[in-house]
Amino acid sequence: MKRIGLKFAAMSVMAGLVSATAAQAQDFTFKLHHFLGAKAPAQTQMLEPWARQVEENSDGRVKIEIYPSMTLGGRPPELIQQARDGVVDLVWTVNGYTPGLFPRTEVFELPTVFKNDPVAANLAMFDMFEDDLKEEYQGVEVMFLHVHAGQGLHMRNTEVRTPADLDGKKLRIPTRTGAWAIEALGASPVAMPVPELPPALQKGVVDGAMIPWEIIPPLKIHEQTEYQIEGHDKERFGSTSFQVSMNADRWNGLPDDIQQAFRDASGRDWWGKVGEVWRGTDNFGIELAVKSGNTHITLTEEETQAFRDALAPVVDRWIEDVSAKGIDGDDLVEKARDLIADNTGAM
């Protein structure tokens, strides 16, 4: 009887330890909401590794649940407000889905500022964040910012080698800076979240889109287009900025050690790593398109310069626009260009 009693007591202690561990593991549960599918590289290669690192840093006290494809409701442009209102704890979203809300960060989207290196751009964003960008992220605590590998042209059935080839075409873009670029090239911008692009291409609502190659596999863009076009040495026509951010009240209510778990997973090296992820997935996307029979056009240096010349006024337009709001656009462009140059080849 005594042995049975001791065994029961030991089992009770073990059960108590397991229960305590489980309870501890559920101390802080966060819902992360985003607009792409669960198999998109943005989730599998960026959001999931980041979430698991935060959980590890917290010794299991944090659990981050990822909800893709807007499964918690709403449309992609509503994500940032969902985070600000505390409807969800965390979001990954496109800054440009809410035009004008993050004007300083737009500098990294501009053609001739962003060219072809998402790692360098992300590191430059990190270096500028505290002094130049942070003030526009009201209501949220930024975990990290990033750009994608840059806007390439995806065309249904039009071969493009000069800006004139785009005259009168309708192109999808998610951001106002991208819309300005499309207008500068003589085309008409059509704003829509990227999940809506495949049927728009299929039905001829748009003739093409400015997006990175990364999005080709998850949305099967290669099945709706014939041509993918980029500049010399992988130069692109601008980029798009994104954020992963937490509701500010939720953040402020966390103990210091849990905040540190997030900070340690979201440092400068991680911002650079995200750039590597997007470059890698971009390469995979264009390889898939080519293997499927699409034509990948890399413009010559001379052809690329014609696009640079056409797009140069976009930077001037942005500087004038933000300057009217009291933002020193000239300074931001100069800083961004210098820091991108300094960080080129950094990783």
Rank of each mutant, 00 (worst) to 15 (best):
M1C: 03
K2I: 14
K2P: 00
R3Y: 06
L6M: 14
F8L: 15
A10P: 07
V18Y: 07
V18R: 02
A20S: 15
A20P: 08
A22S: 13
A22C: 12
Q24H: 15
Q24C: 10
F28W: 15
F30I: 06
F30Q: 06
H33S: 12
H33D: 15
H34C: 10
H34L: 08
G37Y: 11
A38F: 04
K39C: 01
A40M: 07
Q43W: 00
M46D: 10
E48C: 02
E48L: 15
P49C: 11
A51M: 01
R52P: 08
Q53T: 15
D59V: 07
G60L: 09
G60D: 11
I66M: 00
P76G: 10
P76W: 13
E78K: 05
Q82R: 02
A83L: 08
G86Y: 09
L90E: 03
N95S: 13
Y97D: 10
P99W: 06
P103H: 04
F108R: 04
F108I: 04
P111Y: 04
T112A: 03
V113L: 06
V119R: 14
V119M: 11
A120L: 02
A121Y: 05
L123Y: 03
A124G: 06
F126M: 06
M128K: 07
E130C: 03
D131M: 02
E136Y: 09
Y137E: 01
M143Q: 13
M143D: 03
F144D: 03
F144W: 14
G150W: 00
G150A: 03
Q151F: 13
G152M: 08
M155N: 01
R156T: 08
T158E: 11
E159K: 15
R161K: 15
T162R: 13
A164Y: 04
L166G: 04
L166M: 12
K169W: 04
P174A: 05
R176I: 13
A181Q: 05
A184T: 01
L185T: 05
A187K: 07
V194I: 13
L197F: 14
Q202C: 00
G204N: 10
V206C: 07
M210E: 11
E214T: 15
I221E: 02
H222D: 13
E223W: 00
T225I: 14
K234F: 11
E235P: 02
S239V: 08
T240R: 00
S241Q: 12
M246C: 08
N247T: 03
N247W: 09
N247D: 10
A248C: 03
R250Q: 12
W251S: 09
W251M: 06
L254W: 03
L254G: 06
L254S: 10
D256H: 11
D256I: 08
I258M: 04
S266M: 11
V277N: 10
T281G: 04
D282H: 07
N283G: 10
V290F: 06
K291Q: 12
N294S: 07
T298Q: 14
T298W: 01
T300K: 05
E302C: 06
Q305G: 00
D309N: 11
A312I: 00
V314W: 05
V314T: 08
V315E: 13
R317I: 00
W318Y: 15
I319L: 01
D321A: 12
V322G: 00
V322D: 00
I327G: 01
D331R: 15
A336C: 07
R337E: 11
I340W: 06
N343G: 11
G345Y: 11
